[in-house]
Structures are given as C-alpha cells and as structure tokens.
Computed example of a mutant assay.
Amino acid sequence: MTETSAAPPKTMRASVLTGAGSVMLEQRPVPAVAADEVLIKVSAVGVCGSDVHYYREGRIGDFVVDSPLVLGHEAAGTIVAAGAGVDPARIGRRVAIEPQRPCRVCAQCKAGRYNLCPDMQFYATPPIDGAFCEYVTIQADFAHAVPDSVSDEAAALFEPLSVGIWACRKAKLTAGSRVLIAGAGPIGVITAQTARAFGATEVIVSDPVPERRDFVSRFGATQVVDPRTEDVTSLAVDAFIDASGATPALVSGIRAVRGAGTVVLVGMGADEIALPIPVIQNRELVITGVFRYTGTWPTAAGLVESGQVRLDELVTARYGLAAVGAALRADEQPDSLKTIVLPAE
C-alpha cells in the first residue's frame, strides 16, 4: 500500500446506528486497503432519505438492520492511500465516491447492468458500512475525479444526481420532451434540473408544499402544480417520473402520460398499490423502476462543472460527525432540503 507522507491514523471516529432512533459515536479501526482499492479521507456526506428511513424504522423492505451499521452513502473526499495495484499518482486527488461494489462476473454485470448485481455490496445497506466516518475504502475505479471548480459538498451530491440522471435516461428524455415530476424534495429538484439538461423543454413539477414548489421553480421547473387543487391527469406528458413515493401522485401521474409514454418509479412508497391497468394497456405505456445507477458519475461531473445542474444551493443544513442524529432528523424542519455531514467537524 502506498500512503501520503503523513500516514493515516490507525483509528477513526464513526457514527454508528445501534438501533432504530439511536446513533453513537465510536472509535473504529481505519479500514485496510485491498490491492484494487483506495483509502479516502471523507470530506462531505449527504443525508439520504434511505438513511433517515433506516434510522427511524431500522429497515427498508427486505434490508433489515440487525447489527451496528454506519449510515451514509453520498460521499466525497481525498485519496490518502492506494492499494498495491493502484497508481500512486492518485494520492492527494479529490474524488466523488460511487458507493457500490458489484461482483463484475455475474450475468447482470457482464451485460453492463452492474446496478442489478445480485451480490452487490452497497454503502450503508446492511451489512455494509457507509460513510458517516472519517475514512472509507472503495475500488479505485469507483473513486471518480472531481473538477477543481466543484466543491466537496457538490461532489458528495453526485450520488443523488446520479439517481436523477438514471431516471431521465430511463424516461428517454430528449430535446423537446414534456415531463411531469411528482415531488419537489431533493431528488425531484435534482431530476428537474437534469431533465432540462437532457433537453426537456417542459418540466412540470407537482408538490403539495408551497415552499417546495417555489424552490423548484428556481431549479429547472417550467411549471409547478399543486396536486390538491389542480388536475394533474390532464397534463398529457411524454414521461412521468415519480420522486414522491406517494400512491395518489403515482396513480394520477400515470393517467397524465400520453400514448407510448414512459413512467419511471424513483420514490419509495407502498409495497403494493392498485394501478389503472386499462390506461397502461390502452396507451401502451412503459413502466420501469430505478434501482441505483450505472455509469453516471462522468455525466454528473460534466453537468455540475458546466453549471447545468446546481447542487451547492440545495444544502440547507450542515452537521459534524458527533451530531449525525440531529442530521438524520433535520427533515422535520419545513425548510429542510439537503443536509450534509462534515466528518472533520
């Protein structure tokens, strides 16, 4: 292993989820670096809705927290050590972390769909620890270079931006597309910006919260809709992206898609819901899910560096590593959008 002139410490601080609603700051060993990995000193970590869900419920579907777990998967930092098989020139470089390790040999990986690898190891998904700590490791090719003009916080948010990129790709957005997005939370706002960057000329965002509608109006939306008072089903869009997980939003959004259109499910909602099958069948709609992403980090870097997607302005709160519990509860504030954990603080 090759290290910086100042060798990393032997131990580090880590915020550990010990049970639903309980996190503790612990001292843990700095992770060992395998031959194909780099060791990264974490500079910024975004708080994702999945982190909050694990914190409050202790599970997401079949993924159950049954032992102590470090949360956080939206991360960026600086390479401080490199494995024997990694170019040591990468040490000292700022990187955005693609927080997953596929097997690379299964049928899905070989077909280029590594996000669907059945043996995926993903940060902050039981039993794999995440990045609410001072140091993490990742395979070197999943530590992506960050342009000098991009902040550490924005680099950490390449991960939710990757979700928006993947959703827009699945929605087949292109020049002149008309798209409806349900939900003006972090993913909805990021997806609205991404849709405009993909060429969509009409980006309609639906959300019942006035403050969120006002916010997304400044970040990509060409029109905002209050679903409580306006008829979403009459919008006649080419694609619908659900970033809310709300059953009424999903059902009305499907009804808003015109013939041969596409529905993309991003938000986490109910396990089972009733869908308007005649609408889907008679309009020949394509309904697909989003499960993480594949090959999106270079696109994310380009969109942010060019200014087509703005991420820094989405950050509404920052917390140190000792206050991760408060960071995971920050969404209780009405003006909260994106919370960042800074492990150095």
Rank of each mutant, 00 (worst) to 15 (best):
V205R: 09
P127W: 07
D141P: 00
G220V: 03
R94Y: 07
T222R: 01
P210Y: 15
G199V: 07
V286K: 12
V65P: 00
T174D: 02
I254N: 00
I254H: 00
A35N: 14
S149F: 03
V146F: 02
P276A: 11
S50N: 04
I273L: 11
V86E: 02
R196Y: 02
E159L: 05
I277Y: 13
I97T: 00
S217C: 13
R196K: 03
K110A: 13
T316A: 10
V279S: 12
F198E: 00
R90M: 14
T339W: 02
C103R: 07
V163K: 06
T174Q: 04
E134P: 11
S336D: 07
V216M: 12
Q108S: 11
E153A: 09
G112W: 05
L250I: 15
A89Y: 03
A192C: 08
T174M: 05
R292P: 01
V237N: 00
G259S: 13
S15N: 10
P186W: 08
G320L: 14
D238R: 00
G49K: 00
G130P: 05
T191K: 02
Y54E: 01
V264A: 11
R90H: 11
D62G: 10
V33R: 07
G245K: 13
L39Q: 03
C106D: 01
R101M: 14
F219H: 10
V309H: 11
F240H: 08
G320N: 15
F219L: 11
G289E: 09
R196H: 01
V42D: 01
D214N: 15
F215E: 10
R101A: 10
G61N: 06
V33A: 01
R228H: 12
I254C: 00
V47C: 06
E202K: 01
V266F: 04
T201E: 06
V38I: 05
A156R: 01
F63S: 04
C109N: 09
C117N: 08
V47L: 04
L250E: 11
V163S: 04
C48R: 05
G188L: 10
V341D: 01
P186M: 14
A192Y: 04
Y135E: 01
C168V: 02
R329N: 14
A270S: 14
D231I: 10
V179Q: 09
V30P: 01
R329A: 05
E159T: 06
E134Q: 14
H53C: 07
V341T: 09
G188E: 03
D331A: 01
M268R: 15
I204N: 00
F63R: 07
Y54R: 06
D271C: 09
D335C: 11
A195L: 04
T316Q: 08
S177E: 07
V42A: 02
V263I: 10
P147S: 04
P68R: 15
G269K: 14
A89K: 12
D271K: 15
S15I: 11
E26C: 09
F240I: 03
L69Y: 09
V42I: 10
D331Y: 04
Q308K: 12
V304Q: 07
T339V: 11
S50F: 05
V23K: 10
K41A: 12
C133H: 08
A326R: 13
F291D: 10
A20I: 09
R113H: 08
P227V: 14
I79K: 08
Y123I: 07
G58N: 06
V232N: 08
T201S: 10
V33T: 06
V290P: 02
V163T: 13
G302D: 05
P343A: 06
A322H: 14
P210M: 15
